[in-house]
Design a protein around this nucleic acid. Structure first.
Lengths: 342, 342
DNA sequence: ATGAAAGCGCTAACAC
DNA sequence: GTGTTAGCGCTTTCAT
């Protein structure tokens, strides 16, 4: 491997100094056009490639932002990452990805790793296990932008981009009621994550506002997965006060519910089912799954904008904004929408 | 923001020199246990966090490997990334992700960006547009490990991890023939990507080996997407020599095909359909989609191992191995498997 | 077992 | 408009 060309090589070649080269290359104004031209040409000729590491070490800016998500395998997060990249690319920032795999330990390591890599800021959506948030404090202490999205925590005084999850829970429930269902169950996670609690609260309020009877038996606390959906549905169906509709914590869980219902010939919309997230498969299963769209595209875009704004000011935490996006119901066959298109 | 602690602060605190601190922290053997202990303690007390940038600049190793994929939104690639991370984590390497979005320009930029970030190596799966591969040469020129997976190119003398795509095409076709289908069509991309050409070749050979008539009309060249699937199916159905089964270039395309077939009441397995990739939704649509499993988990694992092996030797390109994984047919309802479980 | 010192490639005062 | 120079935080060779 031949040694890589540095600005010193270019300087030597042209009998000028490195500062001139550096300035010419970085668009410094007070440089004669002739010199700049020459430098750029020579750089190209020598196949020069800047060492961003050295630049970052000196300037203190890496132009890399760390993104922590539970998993890229969930379409919702993949979508967000996609739009974060989109929103960031014009500004020269790049992303380094870290997956927590829903584990607090991994998340803590992720923050440390990213900080050691000297990222300019971090965007994160917390793992289901995350009860303690002190690992995030260090980012704030370093005065680097931290933007939390979707799965956030109110103990942290940082900007957040979230869905109106209370509204999402309320809307999903109200929508089922509007469709004529009267005894609505709710499957969610045991974990004390704000968004899931909010949704549950929305559900409860919708039940109450519509003067429907509320029963604790209608609330299933467990995990969120296809298996958990099956299991939750089975449990609800054994109940003497059998529900006629189910709100599932996410689309995977809803899928499990549908599987179970089909097996016992209660195929939705006989028993109504609605999920959350509008996953890639939700439109394509049979019956197609009604769901609450959480607008990952907008969320990612908002994250990027928020970060750029924070990165632009001396003190990123001067004015903390909490952006709340409104959810949308996607009406499909699992709640009786017969002309659902795909 | 208070200044961050460096090894100088630790050295000053203990009245020793930075070299000792550095050695103590990096597990250098010839250090007294007492000193090491003291250093570690002080580091902790002062809330020291190593600056990996500085370390990387000096040592020439960033312990970051760049991964370029068309998109994380495809479950196949998300899976691969997941297992690459898994395979790499014990070695201390981390991933920086770059999405080409199926664009050659983006891919070229990706390579440059990653190289400027001084990654220790790159793993890539090429975009559909990639016809010229010279941007990858630079990685090899720098003697850094380049591992190509899935969508590879034979012009590049680098290690590859691929599926036996010829076999995949052959198996899918043979499987349809075994199921009793006799006039089998094939929808694929116009792009001259090796894996798609190989599959097509497998398809043709299977047709020939089974002494079935071959017709150019049965081959649809277009894009790969739900829309392209619908379109391709529509075109095939208008043909006077209407096929009774369709091999679709990927599961999304197959989904489009199924949509179309359902509309005209030729719901699979009436006309058989098989896809490639075993996407997240494939098991859950109706009818469930038979597909060729490409084993992303194994592929990612192999990528990680290959990279680590290359990174471990002085000349990474001493012995170039090309690993070929064997595909597996997943039999579901779209080809007549009635007891397909979910 | 520890210290001294050079330098990785680049930036940015400060000079002129 | 260009040169000089001092680091950014760390590793590592060469001493001792």
């Amino acid at each position: 491997m031949k040694k890589k060309t540095t600005i010193y090589d270019i300087a030597k070649e042209l009998n000028i100094t490195v500062s001139t080269v550096s300035r010419a290359l970085s668009g410094f104004p007070a440089i004669s056009d002739a010199t700049r031209q020459l430098v750029v040409e020579t750089a190209k000729r020598l196949n020069y490639s800047p060492n961003k590491l050295a630049s970052a070490l000196k300037s203190g800016k890496t132009f890399i932002v760390g993104v922590i998500v539970p998993s890229v395998e969930a379409h919702f997060f993949a979508s967000i990452i996609h739009s974060i990249e989109e929103g960031l690319k014009d500004s020269g920032y790049r992303i380094i990805l870290y997956q927590s795999k829903e584990s607090l330990v991994n998340e803590v390591n992720g923050v440390r790793t990213l900080l050691e890599a000297q990222v300019d800021g971090i965007m994160a959506s917390m793992s289901l296990e995350t009860d303690d948030v002190s690992h995030f404090e260090e980012i704030i202490a370093q005065n680097k932008p931290l933007v939390l999205f979707d799965r956030v925590n109110k103990q942290l005084r940082v900007p957040t981009i979230t869905l109106n999850d209370y509204q999402a829970g309320y809307m999903a429930t109200q929508y089922l009621i509007d469709q004529g269902y009267k005894n609505i169950a709710f499957i969610t996670t045991v974990h004390q994550i704000k968004i899931f609690n909010d949704r549950l609260k929305g559900y409860k309020d919708a039940i109450r506002d519509n003067k429907l009877p509320f029963s604790e038996d209608n609330i299933i606390l467990g995990g969120l997965s296809i298996k958990d959906g099956r299991y939750g549905a089975a449990k609800l169906l054994r109940s003497e006060n059998r529900p006629d509709a189910i709100v599932a914590g996410d689309d995977f869980t809803a899928l499990g519910v549908i599987k179970k219902l089909k097996e016992i010939d209660e195929t939705p919309p006989k028993i109504g089912v609605i999920g959350f997230a509008n996953e890639a498969f939700s439109a394509y299963i049979t019956p197609s799954l009604s769901t609450v769209d959480q607008h990952p595209g907008e969320m990612g875009k908002a994250c990027a904008e928020m970060f750029l704004q924070m990165a632009g000011q001396l003190n990123p935490y001067d004015s903390i904004r909490n952006i709340v996006l409104e959810p949308t119901i996607v009406e499909r066959q699992s709640t009786g929408n017969t002309d659902a298109k795909d």
